[in-house]
Every structure is written in structure tokens, then in C-alpha cells.
Design a protein around this nucleic acid. Structure first.
Lengths: 326, 326
DNA sequence: TTGAAAGCGATACCAC
DNA sequence: GTGGTATCGCTTTCAA
């Protein structure tokens, strides 16, 4: 049997309700008493019983994260950052890798204060939950939840704009992954931008990939660079793709940015870990997770309204881009 | 406020303790009564309050999984399978991606019945936990916990033995990743086996990789195959590496198994998803997770002893290997 | 400033 | 078979 507040109360010679207050740092307990109680608690190795606390407070200080696609690495960094943030405000993160429906059901019977669902499809989440839900991903049409969405279209558009300003006319986009809605958004953004800036279409505008890993970027870029005519600039759909693309470029005895300028989607710290400083567009992970946590807290307090928050991407111009030299 | 057993009791006109029994399918309640109560519960949308249940039963039906390395994909499939198995026996899986120490502390104050820790280092886990712990990974020297370890050395040894039986003399191992203890075990197994079978050493016996992804396998294999003399057989440290290796072999206009035989570590269903049926050595994921779950249940019931369970790898011979033709 | 007591929702034991 | 009741560990009024 582990130690309870009653044990502490006995030791301290006070009532156990006083202990409860002291441990919760209530102002209703005299500082010296409080100090003594906390000392004893520590010494006894007291750990509060969460079940009991949840029972009475009707709060669990736990966020349920629905993350059905662990096998795809994309969100790992996001989850890591999210976890840290929640931890900092005394929340526990509980991850479920089951499908939405199962996970919702689990979390609804488990004591979580809110659910964060990673949603990478357009299909509406048709599930009623008594626990408040925040969604990260594609903004659905009439989502009944607060949804956080990254403006991926605009991100790519910004990249295109930047390259055009630098004088580029032949720009390829590597990262067309069919079946992945998040990726398709980016492709749309690319095509929109080309139209918008009235760039004349050329052969290899969008390059399909099999996946989003370094390997896929490498394969795609090699195919692209193997041809007689090649673009002067490339936009890549993800950081990992970019790594592979860089490799392929080097292999072709080409140089970045002299021969080819490169802008990568994804705004993560790892962009500094390459031989060359990578230009990127995207929302910084920190911004995303901060927004998510804020949204969750608001939702828990019942202050959130079903709406979509679009996060605006930022451009980080670095040495992987330069003006086209004629 | 959500519905409780008292609400059901009122509706059904019975005492709430009867409801409790009925809902737990106790034989002490007449079937018709039981049926009626269950119907009402369903109709009211009753969800048991886990906190209250935990409080009294002193069980939470929850396993805490410590998985600090989500960013490395290797264990994803394992976690997925584990989660399914636990779900099947009414256990909830709670994943923490914090470091061991933090995670243990969280789980110790959170109601979990047992902790499963993924440990990929030799360093002993110096943490006392009142919650029972099962470890998966390298068997420590004097681990105070039940540890499940895969005999990786032996796996590679079996692969070598098989290839030798097929007449191969020049065998390379791709998958030497410094700093990763699990990988180093495999390299050791390879070297041991070569000695054991008295194979004369040749130049490119072990090939270092930067990571364990397809890309890394591709790069390593390309380097290996670019030289004048090449091995007649390759053993690969992981499924993903193998995919890249296959790619590099094809690119060199070589064929598997005619020119090169290939055996891959990792025994996962995906081995059937390639152009060629891949020979593999390793413990099937299902076996691993079954063992883990059994170990956890035993531990929870207090029937487990601190010991190491070694899982023995299996060889699956498929068309990616053939006898050496002279 | 402290203590007593009610109660959160469910289980389990003991009567009836 | 069913109902009453103590109990789990803690928070929260309400009195003292």
C-alpha cells in the first residue's frame, strides 16, 4: 500500500484535510505548517492518487492525442514538442494509435480533459464525443470542432513568388504524393501560383514521389535531373525529400544555389543540419504546438468555438536560393 | 453531468449495487433483471467512470509504454501490434515519449498497472518504481526487471550459416550503425559467425550505414557494388535497408538471387510486399508482442521473476537466396 | 488557521 | 437474488 495523505497527517499531527490543502499550496494554511507538511510528504515519498483526485475534481489534467499514423514519421517532431509543452503546464499526454472512432471511444471512457485528433483526410469526423475535441489537419467543411490548419497552399505559393522574384522561370515541385490530402494541398498551391504569376508551363513542373522520405526525394530528383532540360529552381514538399534532392543534385555535379535554387517545405530546426543552409517555407513547429495547446486549454475551459484557425507560413530565406544569373 | 449507475438504478427500479453487479455480468443477478439493466444502461449511454473504478479496484487496466524514440520508426510496427493485443484483453495503452526517468515518474503517479520500457542502451535503468516494469531491448547485466531480448547475434549467425550452406564464401553485412547497441549486436553476430565457420576474411565484410532507412541501404549498397570485386551474398540489418539494397542491385544490372543472394533481418509481414520474396531472419513481430503481453500480465499478477527471456529468431527462406553457381 | 464531514462513482461484502 | 453500506483517496464546503 502506498502512502496517502492520511499517513502524512498522522506524522504531522494535523488533520488530513489540512494536508490536502497544504499539498495544493492553498493560502488557507499557515506557511510553517505547509512547509512542515510538504517536507514530510517528500520524505515519505508521497505520490497523489490520480484516480481519487480525478474522481473528485472531475479533471484529469490529461490530453488524449489521437495519432493513428505513427508509422509515418511526419508528425513525430510535432508530438515531441507538444508533449513538452503540455508537460510544462502539468498535463499528461496520452497517445492512442487506434483509429479515430476507437480512440474517441477509449478517451471518452477514460478521463481525459480534451482530445487532440490528427486528421489527414477530408472526411468529416462523424463521432459525437462528450470530451471536447480539437483537430489538427485539413479544415473540414462544417467541422463541429475547433480546427487548426496550416495554410499549405499559401506556403508553396510564397515559395514560388520568392523564386520568381529571383528571376526563376523554370520551377519544379517535387512532392506530389497521391492519396495524401496534406500533400495534395501543396500541389494545388503550386499550380495556383504558377497560374497566378502567369508562368508558362514547362515539362516537369510537378514530380510525383512514392513517399516523403529522403530516398523518395533522391529518386525523384535524379529522374528530373537526368533529362536534357532542367529547372533552375526546385520546391520540395518536405524536409526529408529535400535531403534526397540535395544528394541527387550533388551527384549530378551540380551545385546549390549556383545551378539550382532550392526551397523546402517544413519549418523545422533540422534545416540547419545540412551542408547548406536550406531556405524553407512553413509554420514553425513551435508556433503550431503553441497554437494547439492554447486551443486545447480554451476548449477545456469551454471558451472555444467551433472554427478554423489557419496558421500562416513563414519564409526563411537562406543560402540555398539565389537570383538567376543569365 | 454524465450518467452513473445510480441513474440506471432509478430507471430500473433496483438498487445501484445490483446495477453494478449486472454491468459486471455477475452471476448473482437474475438474467432477466440483468438484461433489463443492460438495456437501460445502453439506452442512457452509460460510460463507466474509470477514475472511480480505479479508485476502488486498485487496477487501471492500463499499460504505460515508455517509448522515448518515436522519431525512429523501428518500433512502430511493434507498438501497433502490441496495442492491438492489449486492446483485445481490455487494456488501454498509454504511451509516453519522455525519457525513462520522467516517464517512470509520470507512470508512477498515474494509474498504470505495469510499465513496458523500450530500452536500447546497455546502461542499467537506475530507477525504482512501485509499478512493475518489463523491459524490451538489450538484456542488462543485473536487471531487476523481467527483460525480453531478441537474440540478434544468433539471428545473423543463422543467416550466415544458411548462406554458407548454399556455397557462399563472400558475404557482406550491411547495417553497421555505430552508437546503436541493437545494431552492434548484429554486427557482433556476423563477425562471430565468420570466425565460427572459418570463412576467410575479405575486403568488404561489414558496411557501415548512416541510418536504417531505405536510403541508407541504397547508398551503402551502391558503394559496395561499385567496386571491382563484390560479394556473392549480402545480409542486411533491417527491412528498410534491404529495400534500398535491392534498388542498388537492380541499378547495377544485377539480379537477385542469380548474381547476389540477400537475407534481411526483421521478420515482418512487409517482406512479402517487394518484387521478390525476401528471405529473412528474425523473431516474428507477433511472437514478440505475444511474449511482451504475457510478461506484462504475469508481472501484474506478481508471478514474474526478474529474468531475461531470449526470443529465438526464425529463418524464412524465400527466393532471394540461391545456391552459388560456379 | 484548522478540523470535521460530505461526497465523487464504483466495488464488494454482508445481511435479508 | 437483491439491497444496504463501508470503502477507496482526495477535494471542498462549512464550522469551530
Amino acid at each position: 500500500m502506498s502512502v496517502t495523505i492520511k499517513d502524512i497527517a498522522k506524522q504531522a499531527g494535523v488533520s488530513y484535510s489540512t494536508v490536502s490543502k497544504a499539498l495544493r499550496d492553498s493560502p488557507l494554511v499557515k506557511p510553517p505548517t505547509k512547509k512542515r507538511i510538504i517536507a514530510i510528504a517528500e520524505q515519505l515519498g508521497y505520490k497523489p492518487n490520480v484516480a481519487a483526485r480525478n474522481l473528485v475534481s472531475r479533471r484529469s489534467q490529461t490530453i488524449g492525442v489521437v495519432w493513428p499514423t505513427i508509422e509515418r514519421v511526419a508528425h513525430s517532431a510535432l508530438i515531441t514538442s507538444l508533449n513538452q509543452r503540455l508537460e510544462a503546464i502539468n498535463y499528461t499526454t496520452l497517445i492512442s494509435i487506434n483509429d479515430m472512432k476507437t480512440a474517441f471511444s477509449t478517451f471518452n471512457q477514460y478521463p481525459v480533459d480534451a482530445i487532440l485528433a490528427f486528421n489527414d483526410s477530408y472526411s468529416p469526423i462523424d463521432y459525437t464525443s462528450s470530451v471536447p475535441i480539437v483537430t489538427y489537419g485539413i479544415a473540414g467543411q462544417h467541422s463541429p470542432f475547433l480546427t487548426i490548419d496550416v495554410n499549405r497552399k499559401k506556403a508553396i505559393q510564397i515559395a514560388v513568388e520568392q523564386l520568381i522574384q529571383l528571376g526563376h522561370q523554370h520551377i519544379s515541385y517535387i512532392g506530389d504524393l497521391s492519396g495524401d490530402f496534406l500533400q495534395e494541398e501543396k500541389v494545388k498551391g503550386f499550380k495556383n501560383a504558377l497560374e497566378l504569376f502567369q508562368l508558362k508551363p514547362f515539362a516537369d513542373q510537378t514530380i510525383k514521389v512514392q513517399g516523403l522520405e529522403q530516398y523518395d526525394g533522391y529518386i525523384a530528383a535524379r529522374k528530373l535531373l537526368g533529362k536534357k532540360s532542367r529547372p533552375t529552381a526546385i520546391i520540395s514538399g518536405s524536409h526529408d525529400l529535400s535531403r534526397g534532392i540535395l544528394q541527387a543534385i550533388y551527384e549530378n555535379q551540380l551545385s546549390v544555389p549556383v545551378d539550382i535554387s532550392l526551397i523546402s517545405y517544413d519549418n523545422i530546426p533540422e534545416r540547419h543540419h545540412l551542408d547548406i543552409a536550406l531556405s524553407t517555407v512553413g509554420v514553425p513547429i513551435d508556433t503550431i504546438t503553441k497554437t494547439l495547446v492554447d486551443a486545447l486549454m480554451h476548449t477545456i475551459e469551454g471558451k472555444a468555438v467551433p472554427q478554423t484557425i489557419y496558421l500562416e507560413p513563414e519564409l526563411n530565406l537562406a543560402s540555398s536560393c539565389q537570383a538567376l544569373t543569365l
